Simulated scan of single mutants.
Amino acid sequence: MLAYGVAADAVDDYVRIAESTTIECLEKFVEGVISVFEDEYLRKPNLNYLRRLLQMEEGRGFLGMLGSIYCMHWEWKNCPKAWKSMYMNVYHGVATIVLEVVVCSDLWIWHVFFGVSGSKNDINVLDCSPVFDDILNDRAPEVNYTINGNNYTMGYYLVDGIYLEWAAFVKSISKPQKEKHKLFAQYQEGQRKDVKRAFGVLQARFAIICGLARFWKKKKLANIM
């Protein structure tokens, strides 16, 4: 079910397990994976990885960059009718749940925020997201770098044009005219493809999120994601 996205009753004759038992096994399996690997793979960068991350991104021309922020919608087929309007994605006309991630260039997804209704856009999702909690609570490690003679102590993220003009966001240049602006836009947009590649790899390895979300409870969908 995770790898190929097949229905719970698709292989019941082969594995000799009833549909309800298959679903229960899937739920227990993802809970087990989270229990074993959460501390290592669902954590924020520690100081050692942060140094490696900054060196990696500096080698690609972006000093002080912590990754790219992007959102993906997962269509929720079995969304309860009472929630249908809240989760309705106006662009696609279906109920969706939003996944927000931060991805660095080695495709490590070091920030995950899942469960926001599909009626919200990237900005609304950011308002609910804990991605800046450490900065607001003065717990974030300093990121020191110098650009054009100016010293900075806070890292930043690459984003697309919908995001606000915050110091923590670096966007591309719309309709660049000068050569240096064209060069910057080319590099910024090229670097942001990492997050789309990460989504592509995620969906290729776990086809269950390529199809429709078929569970009724958000908690189970969150565990799968």
Rank of each mutant, 00 (worst) to 15 (best):
M1K: 04
A3Y: 12
A3F: 11
V6A: 02
A8P: 03
A8W: 15
V11Q: 05
D13T: 09
Y14K: 03
T22K: 01
C25T: 06
G32H: 11
I34F: 08
F37I: 07
E40W: 09
Y41L: 12
R43I: 01
P45D: 12
P45E: 10
N46C: 10
N48Q: 11
N48H: 07
R52W: 00
L53F: 10
Q55M: 06
Q55N: 14
E58W: 02
E58Y: 12
R60G: 02
G61T: 06
F62G: 04
L63T: 02
L66F: 04
S68I: 11
S68K: 01
I69E: 05
Y70D: 15
M72A: 12
W76I: 04
W76F: 05
K77E: 15
N78Q: 10
A82P: 00
M86N: 11
Y87T: 02
M88Y: 13
M88D: 08
V90G: 06
Y91R: 13
L99R: 03
C104L: 02
S105C: 13
D106E: 14
D106V: 03
W108K: 13
I109G: 04
F114R: 01
G115C: 02
G115F: 04
N121Q: 08
D122P: 02
D122V: 05
S129M: 07
P130H: 08
V131L: 11
V131G: 04
I135H: 02
L136P: 00
D138H: 09
D138N: 14
R139V: 00
E142Q: 13
V143T: 09
T146K: 12
T146C: 15
T146A: 09
I147V: 15
N148C: 10
N151Q: 13
M154T: 15
G155R: 03
Y156I: 03
L158D: 01
L158S: 03
V159R: 10
Y163M: 07
L164E: 13
A167T: 10
A168H: 09
F169R: 04
V170H: 01
K171C: 11
I173W: 09
S174P: 02
K175G: 04
P176V: 07
E179T: 11
L183P: 01
L183I: 11
F184E: 06
Q186Y: 11
Y187D: 04
E189R: 14
Q191S: 13
D194K: 07
D194S: 15
R197S: 08
A198V: 03
A204W: 01
A207C: 12
A207W: 05
I208N: 03
I209C: 11
C210S: 14
A213R: 06
F215A: 08
K218I: 14
A222I: 12
A222Q: 05
M225W: 03
M225E: 06
